[in-house]
Amino acid sequence: MSVVTSDDWLADTRISYDTVAVDYADRQRDAIAGDPYLRAALAVFADRVRAAGGGPVADVGCGPGHVTAHLRGIGVDAFGIDLSPGMIDVARRDHPGLRFQVGSMTHLHLGDASVAGLLAWWSSIHVPDDEVPIVFAHFHRILRPGGPLQLGFHVGDTSRLKTEGYGGHPMAVHVHRRRPDKVASWLRDAGFEIEAQWLCDPDEPVPQALLFARRLP
């Protein structure tokens, strides 16, 4: 079996999402408006940011920027970061005036304790298990003590190679499904306290989970 290096999966993820960026944006444009549970999760996140004193919030793995824009619409000073330059181009096109930048969650170029909150919705699903602690260590480093973190991910115990994506375009990304208790354990090891856990679509073949956490001092 071949070994997938860090550069391999990052490059594959970047190229894949560059390829599908426009079609992905079209698919996701009304996702939040059509889901009351996602809107509720973002409202809770916004309240937690305000309770922690407010300030800039990083939407890590922001894709086409629809979540970033929703957060701005409910009063959160959010900005977006994504590995894919194509996604960032679409985000800037669709949401002019908002801040978006290219960056990797494995090497976040943000200052220590520089953000008041961090959201990563279904953007860590391509990160290999052995790299997740590195990602969560970066999340801990850039968050202020007490700052809220919200993660969304697919629930399960398997990984699959996604070879075709939105609009029928070719992709080459591994999608990792994980149990909430496993993700929560990684977060605790990184210095976070788990505040709540939501399980969405539990009767679907692949449920979705949201973890609400905060950075410990």
Results as ranks from 00 to 15, higher is better:
residue 1 M to N: 10
residue 4 V to M: 04
residue 5 T to E: 15
residue 9 W to E: 01
residue 9 W to T: 00
residue 16 S to I: 13
residue 18 D to S: 13
residue 21 A to M: 05
residue 28 Q to F: 05
residue 31 A to C: 10
residue 34 G to R: 11
residue 39 R to I: 09
residue 42 L to G: 01
residue 44 V to Y: 06
residue 44 V to T: 14
residue 45 F to T: 02
residue 46 A to L: 11
residue 53 G to Q: 09
residue 55 G to K: 06
residue 57 V to M: 13
residue 62 C to D: 00
residue 64 P to M: 06
residue 64 P to G: 08
residue 65 G to H: 06
residue 68 T to K: 03
residue 68 T to C: 09
residue 71 L to T: 11
residue 72 R to V: 08
residue 76 V to I: 13
residue 79 F to A: 07
residue 80 G to E: 04
residue 83 L to F: 14
residue 85 P to F: 01
residue 86 G to F: 08
residue 87 M to N: 07
residue 94 D to A: 07
residue 95 H to R: 08
residue 96 P to G: 11
residue 100 F to Y: 15
residue 102 V to H: 03
residue 104 S to A: 15
residue 104 S to D: 15
residue 107 H to E: 15
residue 109 H to R: 14
residue 111 G to F: 07
residue 117 G to D: 00
residue 118 L to D: 06
residue 123 S to E: 11
residue 132 V to S: 03
residue 135 V to F: 03
residue 137 A to I: 01
residue 142 I to Y: 11
residue 144 R to L: 12
residue 146 G to I: 01
residue 148 P to T: 02
residue 151 L to I: 15
residue 152 G to T: 07
residue 158 T to R: 04
residue 163 T to C: 09
residue 167 G to C: 09
residue 174 H to I: 08
residue 174 H to Q: 08
residue 181 D to P: 01
residue 181 D to A: 14
residue 189 D to V: 07
residue 189 D to T: 14
residue 191 G to E: 13
residue 192 F to W: 06
residue 193 E to S: 09
residue 196 A to Q: 11
residue 198 W to I: 00
residue 198 W to K: 02
residue 201 D to G: 06
residue 203 D to N: 07
residue 206 V to G: 09
residue 207 P to T: 04
residue 208 Q to T: 05
residue 208 Q to I: 06
residue 209 A to P: 05
residue 213 A to S: 04
residue 216 L to H: 09
residue 217 P to T: 08
